[in-house]
Design a protein around this nucleic acid. Structure first.
Lengths: 192, 192
DNA sequence: AGATTTTATTGATATGGGTTAAGATGTGGG
DNA sequence: CCCACATCTTAACCCATATCAATAAAATCT
């Protein structure tokens, strides 16, 4: 059950002992989401970070009633509305399940206690925050510098698994364009 | 000399002892940049984080030969091309001084040693990464959801110090629009 | 102060991508 | 197997913002 998450933690903090692990894993909460269930709703404070044991999750923004998808998360990845989690302010993004999913949660208060009682956990926290920063920065760079067509080409080259797993209008949302425009781009690119 | 940076660190990690502080501050390097000098150039690996003791710094992207400004950093703030620093890959952003500035640098190797030898430093590293994540996330949210006019209004309301310190074409760059367009927005908004 | 460079404004035109609307294709549930 | 609904495509039109070009105004240098 905890094999993958333990590997994930050990990769971040090689000094993790069995005692550390016991303290951490004792605080895990396992939850199951069905397709369409919410993990975090915009407006609520996000009280946990979640490790995806298996399933498929998305994080998105609701803007004028429309969804703007920021990311897809699958097996052995972490997801949280991390700004809300850290600041204790209402979440801006919404997180829900695109497929039935099993998640391992760590709650805010438990994490604060782990930070106090197991210094090695500070390193895990640091590495997670660093990783999220890098991911975010990379994403922002791509959004800033590539045209929609280039972003779509990049997705085909580097994230093609998404193409088989989500409908095209969600791909468009993730690329930051309308479904109509993606359809036009596809037509145009097919001629090359 | 180190008053401000010490306060900054103590705010992040209240448990910081004099011994910890001595170990950290022994590794500081002070540098002085003149207006126009670079701290990091795109393409180089960024080997340090920098605390601005005093001065005025900007971080920007060069895109088709044009500058696109991501942020301004002034007294008692941290700046780094953090993704490059963490990943040891070439920097994407460029960082230079808009005014003569005094910076306190911590180098990559020194930071790794501090992490090993002074566990309290892990907390500092975690808090810094968390802070940068929150800042970045907030920025991305603003860029994603507000119109250029709303972003300019927000800047007037919340970052008005910038207006006295940088030329308008840099404000435009920071807002993600052309100088011509900002000029038009100003004209339009003046009529309200 | 005059000259040169930098910065800001204004107007005309171009364009990438959004919006709207309609039809075509696909697909899962009863 | 068929219906209903979801998804994708296509076309016409629109709009916000970029681009290009010309001044105008301000700042800086000698």
């Amino acid at each position: 059950m905890f094999d993958h998450i333990r590997k994930y933690y050990e990769a971040l903090a090689p000094g993790l002992t069995d005692a550390d692990w016991a303290a951490i894993s004792a605080r895990f909460e396992i939850i199951h989401l069905k397709k369409g269930d919410y993990l975090v709703r915009a407006g609520q404070v996000c009280n946990h970070v979640a490790f995806v044991n298996n399933g498929f999750i998305r994080i998105y923004l609701i803007k004028d009633g429309k969804e703007s998808i920021n990311g897809f998360i699958t097996n052995n990845q972490y997801i949280s509305e991390y700004t809300s989690f850290l600041t204790r302010q209402p979440a801006i993004y919404t997180i829900d399940a695109l497929e039935d999913s099993e998640l391992i949660l760590l709650h805010y208060n438990d994490m604060q206690e782990l930070y106090e009682q197991h210094p090695v956990f500070e390193r895990v926290g640091r590495k997670v925050a660093e990783f999220l920063f890098i991911e975010f920065d990379t994403h922002a760079y791509i959004a800033d510098t590539l045209t929609p067509e280039q972003r779509y080409q990049r997705l085909i080259d580097k994230e093609s698994a998404l193409l088989d797993r989500v409908p095209q209008y969600m791909i468009a949302s993730y690329l930051g364009i309308t479904p109509e425009h993606l359809s036009r781009l596809r037509k145009k690119m097919a001629g090359k």
